Simulated assay, not measured.
Amino acid sequence: MKFVIITGLSGAGKSQAMKCMEDLGFYCVDNLPPVLIPKFAELCFSNRGEIQKIALVIDIRGRKFFNDLFKSLDQLKNNGYKYEILFLDASDETLIKRFKETRRVHPLNTEGRIIDGINSERQRLEELKLRADKIINTSDMTPGELKEEIKKVYIEGTNNNIIISVLSFGFKKGIPLDADLVFDVRFLPNPHYIPELKEFTGNDKNVRDYVMKWPESIDFVKKLNDLIDFLIPYYEREGKYQLVIAIGCTGGKHRSVTVANILYDYLKEKGHRVKINHRDVPK
């Protein structure tokens, strides 16, 4: 039997994940009080094979009942019931944007600032995130992309194939909060100071050709590819499900975009599950 507990940050996509699990044939229960999980598991595991896939959404909406979760998880383990935890995460900026777009209030801070509720929730979920078997960061995902990722994990059996997100950014707007690896390419010659290139981006051939015509650019890209090739198997061995590689320059429009695109093409050609996002390039 597949027994999955879906949890994570409010606004990170748990409801969408549950809908996806239902489409995949899971029997889903939303916001079950954690103290009831062991009894519910007992009923499911003793149903003589009638229900083979279960998904529970458990989060801080349970208020004080949420405090029973770890005790219930330990009881599941002691009773010999196998389960997986799927944790959905997203950046603070993404969560704030989603709350504002939907005009929802944060369940931990109904009268104050959204960010205060997010910070409080992150602290309460920190230990649970450490226990998670799978972590999906939905910051740059559409509902359709989240569904595809869940299908790959729970149906297609590719859960050992790490998801790599390559992200370009500008240091002047801050380092991405969800970055696992950050590389600074501000040492490369800057097209910003070339009048005929200033208004273009690293997505344009003229800028890419300029950035990559220097020996230090070629050497850096080669060493970067070699390092990522070295690291990926070890991240997969440790059970990491998603890797965010951030490439930064001053403004996030020229050098970082060029290098990020080259890394993306390299990883895609090698058959990795890879996405790319240029944070500071105007959409």
Rank of each mutant, 00 (worst) to 15 (best):
M1S: 14
S10P: 09
A17N: 07
C20G: 08
G25D: 12
C28L: 11
V29W: 04
N31Y: 04
N31R: 11
N31L: 11
L32Q: 12
F40E: 02
A41W: 07
A41G: 05
E42I: 06
E42S: 12
C44K: 10
G49S: 00
Q52L: 14
Q52G: 13
A55S: 06
I58E: 04
D59F: 00
G62I: 05
G62T: 11
R63D: 14
F66G: 10
K77W: 02
K77A: 13
D89T: 11
R98C: 09
T102S: 13
R104M: 08
L108M: 11
G112I: 03
I114G: 05
N119T: 11
R124W: 12
L128H: 08
K129Y: 06
L130I: 11
T138D: 11
L146A: 00
K151D: 02
Y154S: 08
N160I: 07
N161I: 14
I163A: 12
I164S: 00
S165T: 12
S165N: 15
V166I: 12
G170F: 00
K172Y: 09
G174M: 13
I175M: 14
L177E: 15
N190S: 05
Y193T: 03
E199R: 12
D204Q: 10
N206Y: 09
N206C: 13
I218S: 06
I218P: 09
L224S: 08
F230V: 05
L231Y: 04
P233V: 10
E236L: 03
R237N: 13
E238H: 07
K240R: 14
Q242K: 12
Q242V: 00
Q242S: 02
L243S: 08
G252Y: 04
G252I: 09
H254Y: 09
I276M: 11
N277M: 14
K283I: 14
